[in-house]
Amino acid sequence: MKIEIWSDVMCPFCYIGKRNFETALEQFSNKNGIEVEWKSFQLDPSLPEVQDSNYTDYLMVSKGLGRPQVEGMLNNVTQMAKGVGLEYDFDRAVMVNSFKAHRVLQLAKMRGLGDAAEERLFRAFFTEGRNIADDETLLELGKEAGLNETEIRSSLSDERYSDMVRQDIQEARAIGVTGVPFFVFNRKYAVSGAQPPQAFLQTLEKAYAEWREANPEIKIEVTKGQSCSIDGVCD
């Protein structure tokens, strides 16, 4: 059963939601029957590729809030992150456009490394203060996630990766996604936001039970005889 996750690597609740979802998945008895696909989403496509403000100042302007209120909000989120084992450092966060990062994430998804790339980019942005709009930084982070250097460079220049990012975003709008993280289970149920693990687990169990009923496991009774295997062994 497929679970699609719309996310932006600059969204603090997306990283927390990822951890809570992972906790639920570890507790789920049929986790080997789950396929996870990460989808691109941009919370603010207007951000420049070159930093012109820090996280606090950005929120003050974009949300129209005072500094004490914003600092209180960020402190609360930092404590929430600690509760799931994450270290956030908003003072180091480099506020830049995430579109290039999503191009690399599209490549990672094609290579079966979507989760690894999401994890590496989240940590780079929220913990390490890395610039996720810088080509050489993305090249390094992509390689650390297991991607090929030549392919990473291609993802940053080939427009088909941009088209894939836009397609994910358009798809999100079509199904009514207005914020992230947004988890869609078998295109029937959804969990919005960084919900606790139990909320994910309950939806997992419900969605999987229905999916399994519609897609019963095929069990064949086999009478064995001499044969050749795919590794070339015949006996």
Rank of each mutant, 00 (worst) to 15 (best):
D231V: 12
S29E: 12
L43D: 00
R187F: 07
E128D: 11
D134S: 13
K109D: 04
R153L: 12
E151N: 09
K100R: 14
R111E: 09
T137H: 11
Y58T: 08
F21K: 00
R92T: 09
F90H: 03
S40H: 01
Y88L: 05
D91K: 14
G232Q: 05
F200M: 08
A116Y: 01
A81N: 05
M110G: 11
K188C: 06
I230A: 15
Q42W: 01
F13Q: 01
I218W: 08
D115I: 03
D89T: 10
A194H: 03
D134P: 06
F99E: 05
G129Q: 07
D115V: 03
F182M: 03
V94F: 05
R173Y: 08
A199P: 15
R103D: 05
R212E: 14
N76F: 14
D231Y: 12
A101G: 11
E118H: 14
L107T: 00
M80F: 15
F200Q: 05
K143D: 10
G33M: 04
L47G: 04
L121M: 04
V222C: 12
E213L: 14
A124F: 03
D57Y: 04
I34C: 03
N148R: 06
L156P: 02
Q167M: 13
N97C: 06
R67M: 03
F122L: 03
A133G: 04
F13H: 09
D134N: 15
A116L: 05
F90M: 06
P12N: 08
V184S: 00
P68W: 04
N30D: 11
D89I: 07
A93Q: 11
N32Y: 07
E171F: 03
E35G: 02
S227D: 10
I218S: 10
V96L: 04
A207S: 11
E136D: 14
E151R: 04
S29H: 14
E26L: 13
N75H: 15
V77A: 10
D235L: 14
E144G: 12
R92Y: 03
Q106M: 10
K109F: 04
E71K: 13
T178N: 12
Y55P: 01
K188A: 06
S29R: 13
M80P: 07
N54W: 02
Q42I: 03
